[in-house]
Each structure stands twice: as C-alpha cells, then as structure tokens.
C-alpha cells in the first residue's frame, strides 16, 4: 500500500486516525454500492433468476434420475446450488469493479486521500450483503418446493452462512481478476470458463460416487465440494465432520491471497 511508503512528516495522521478514516471510507463505499444495487434492481434480478431456474430445472427435470442419500433430491441439491450461486456473486464483484474502472470513477477515487483497501473491502461487504439477500430468497423458494432443514436453528443458519463465508475470498480473487483485466467482457469469459468446471466437478449436483473413478479424487479435493458438503451436512442436521474445518482453512488461505492481490491490482500505478 502506498501509505506505507509515505515519509513521516508533521502532517502525517496517526495510525489511529488513519484506521478511523479507513473504517469510515469503507462504510461510505458500502453505502454507495448498496445504493447502486437498489437503483439498478435488474442487477439483483440478474443474479437471482438463473439460480432459481437452476433450482427448478434440477429438481423437476434431472432430480428424478439422480439417486442420493437424502430423502429427496431438493434437500440434496439446494445447498449445492446455493453455494454455487453465492460463488457466482464473486462474478458480480469483478463486474462491478471493472465497470468502475471503465467509467473512470476509480481514477477519481485513486486521486482522493481515501483508504485504498476501502474500495475493495467496501465492494466485498456490499456484495456479501447482496449474497445474504440471495441466500434468503433461494431458501424461501426451496421451501416452497419441498426443501426442509433437518437440524437445529443454529445449524440451519450455519448452512447458508458457510456458503456466504466461502464466497468471500472467491469474490476477492475475482476482484483481483476484474481489476487486472479491466474489461467487463473479459471478466465474463474468464468467469464462465472457471466457474462451470469448478462447480460441476464437485458434490454439488450429483453424489461424487456416481462419477468415473478417475474424476472422483478431483471432485473430492475440490474446495467447492468441501463447502457444499459442510453446508449440506448442516442443512440435514448431520455432523459436518472435517469438512467444516477444511472450509475455514480454505477461507483463510484464499483470503490471505485474494484480498492483498485485489488491493494491489487497484493501487497499481503503472
């Protein structure tokens, strides 16, 4: 970050002041991004229409042909589609950032005495809030077509929370990509070619045991499978076992890579 290279001088604000500014900058940025969400409702519609379609198509078209250990397919697939949808939210993060680069707004922000990380964190927090909204909506629709939580209240909250948490570092990595390629179109191409294989070669839509034996280890090692497994276990009220810890480790590792990468991509002065 540039602030670390600032020579100490009489007017350099204290660490405390800088921290307070950073928090305030982040809040303002979250507010600005949420305003854009509210005023461009088509954005929310865009991110919710396809997952709801997925949910209906998988449940009613494919579900009958897929044998799962759960009482019915919707119980199996909802956590999978939910975590996938939340991951797709990272796409929105990258698109939003690429838009802000293209519109010239980031040049304004970068010329202001504001915190560099606030721009990234403010975006991530706003997208996290939108993800919470999406999760509530999808669970609601799932319940209309037969989905039921099998565990305690806490486990029921924990199930989507795992997905929301897992999507966060992914969004940061997407953000770094969006800020590096700087074009809405390129983000689309990269996003689709990455997300589809990652989310389909996993335990999200079919039991891993039904895949060819050479593919099973790939699907099992996929961190996305871990997140789905943890979320699904909590939804069913079963013990998530090691998947929960595994997800948390992935979240920490990916965050440690993604967030600094995104902030660096934003601050870069070529």
């Amino acid at each position: 970050m540039t602030s670390s290279t600032t020579a100490p001088s009489l007017t350099t604000p204290s660490l405390m002041t800088r921290f307070r500014w950073g928090v305030s900058d982040t809040f303002v940025m979250v507010g600005r991004n949420l305003l854009r969400y509210v005023r461009l409702p088509e954005n929310i519609v865009n991110v919710t229409v396809s997952p709801i379609m997925f949910l209906l198509l998988f449940t009613y078209v494919l579900g009958g042909a897929i044998r799962t250990s759960t009482p019915d397919y919707i119980t199996f697939v909802l956590p999978g589609i939910l975590v996938q949808t939340l991951l797709f939210g990272g796409f929105g993060t990258a698109l939003g950032l690429a838009q802000d680069v293209q519109s010239g707004l980031f040049d304004r922000y970068r010329s202001l005495p504001m915190s560099r990380s606030a721009v990234i964190v403010g975006r991530l927090v706003a997208d996290l809030l939108s993800n919470i909204f999406v999760a509530v909506l999808m669970i609601g629709i799932g319940m209309l077509i037969g989905f039921r939580f099998g565990g305690s209240f806490l486990e029921s909250i924990g199930s989507p929370a795992i997905g929301i948490l897992f999507a966060l570092p992914a969004a940061a990595i997407f953000a770094a990509v969006g800020l590096t390629v700087r074009s809405v179109e390129a983000v689309n191409v990269i996003g689709f070619t990455l997300i589809f294989p990652i989310t389909f070669v996993s335990s999200a839509f079919v039991p891993v045991e039904s895949m060819p034996s050479w593919l099973q280890p790939v699907a099992e090692a996929n961190p996305f499978s871990l997140a789905v497994n943890a979320s699904r276990s909590l939804a069913l009220g079963e013990d998530p076992g090691s998947s929960l810890g595994g997800v948390l480790i992935w979240v920490v590792v990916l965050s440690a890579i993604g967030v600094p990468l995104a902030v660096r991509a934003y601050s870069r002065r070529s």
Partner: peptide
Amino acid sequence: VRDAARLRRSIGVAGQQVAVDDQLTGLE
C-alpha cells in the same frame, strides 16, 4: 512519488474521462 498519500489531500483532479457516478444524484 514519495509522498503521494499526503499530496492527495492538497489536490483536485478532473481527468479526461468524466468520473461521475451515474446512479447517484448530483448532490450524492
């Protein structure tokens, strides 16, 4: 270069590309 963060408090910029937030009002 060395004191960029501090300089940003003393300057104003309107770049070649108009940097306006389209979804926000003028006041906002």
